[in-house]
């Protein structure tokens, strides 16, 4: 019974979050565009589905996956598990945290695959590119980007190096890749940086960052705990452009091979 009442409160909270968006949409539609909405019935049904879906989704995450995921992040970053001795003043060798990096990678990858906004963008990209961009191809390359980003971000917290060195280097790599990658993918690649970090990823990644920066000697959760999200939004840009470059290269090679075969 408590589950149902919880679900009801989550539904109310979702309605409250969606309300400003609905007011803007319908306000402009009625007052500025002054046109009747085609298929109004279908669109309203869609909104109801989205509201119900989000409420179930968030409530399920709150009840099951978040508590366990956060607990695991705490356990994996607990001093006993990491082998940090009482009174240690430095972080020790970065290699003693291998499980943490592996967890960061795995949790980054798997939460990104389940991220609803990424699913939405992948559906749209698939439609617009007339099937040339596969929904799974895009989602997996974004997920790999997030996974690498969060692992590297955990390494940064362990070593305590300044955040902006990594981000600025990342920017330079993105700019170089932008010059060489197929033009049609650029905007989508930039977008995939922003969509990765929302409902599912942020709470778990934040718990990991907080656990690491609290338990590792010499780190301050208020200063070092941030920044994982920034990594998770930067690396997918690179991996999506990389994916496009790779598919272009494979296609070119197949084509030139075919041409070679024809000459024989």
């Amino acid at each position: 019974m408590t589950r149902l009442t919880d679900l009801f409160w989550t539904l109310l909270a979702t309605v409250r979050d969606v309300l400003p968006i609905a007011v803007i949409l319908f306000g402009f539609q009625l007052l500025v565009l002054r046109k009747k909405i085609i298929n109004l019935h279908q669109i309203l049904t869609g909104f109801v589905f989205v509201l119900l879906g989000l409420a179930f989704f968030l409530e399920g995450l709150e009840q099951a996956l978040f508590p366990l995921g956060k607990l695991m992040a705490q356990q994996l970053t607990a001093p006993e598990f990491l082998g940090i001795k009482d009174g240690a003043t430095d972080a020790g060798s970065w290699t003693q945290y291998l499980w943490v990096y592996l967890f960061a990678f795995a949790i980054g990858f798997s939460t990104t695959i389940a991220e609803p906004s990424l699913i939405a963008v992948a559906i749209k990209a698939n439609q617009v590119s007339a099937g040339a961009i596969g929904t799974w191809g895009l989602r997996i390359s974004v997920a790999i980007g997030v996974a690498v980003g969060i692992s590297l971000g955990s390494y940064r917290i362990v070593t305590g190096t300044p955040l902006h060195y990594y981000i600025i280097t990342g920017y330079i790599l993105v700019i170089i890749q932008t010059i060489y990658c197929p033009k049609s993918i650029i905007a989508l690649a930039y977008d995939s940086g922003g969509v990765t970090t929302s409902t599912v990823t942020v709470p778990l990644v934040a718990a990991l960052g907080l656990g690491l920066s609290t338990n590792i000697p010499g780190r301050n959760p208020l200063l070092d705990g941030f920044g994982l999200i920034a990594f998770a939004s930067l690396f997918p840009i690179m991996s999506v452009m990389g994916y496009a470059q790779l598919s272009e290269w494979v296609a070119n090679r197949a084509r030139s091979k075919q041409r070679g075969d024809g000459r024989d």
């Binding site: 049904t45 179930f56 399920g60 699913i119």
Partner: peptide, 23 residues
């Protein structure tokens, strides 16, 4: 139970996207 909720939620959300938000 929580995982079942998440699965139901995701299914409804994606369905609602195609019916409402995208159009």
């Amino acid at each position: 139970v929580g995982t079942l909720f998440v699965v139901i939620g995701l299914t409804l959300f994606v369905h609602g996207l195609r019916l409402g938000l995208f159009p």
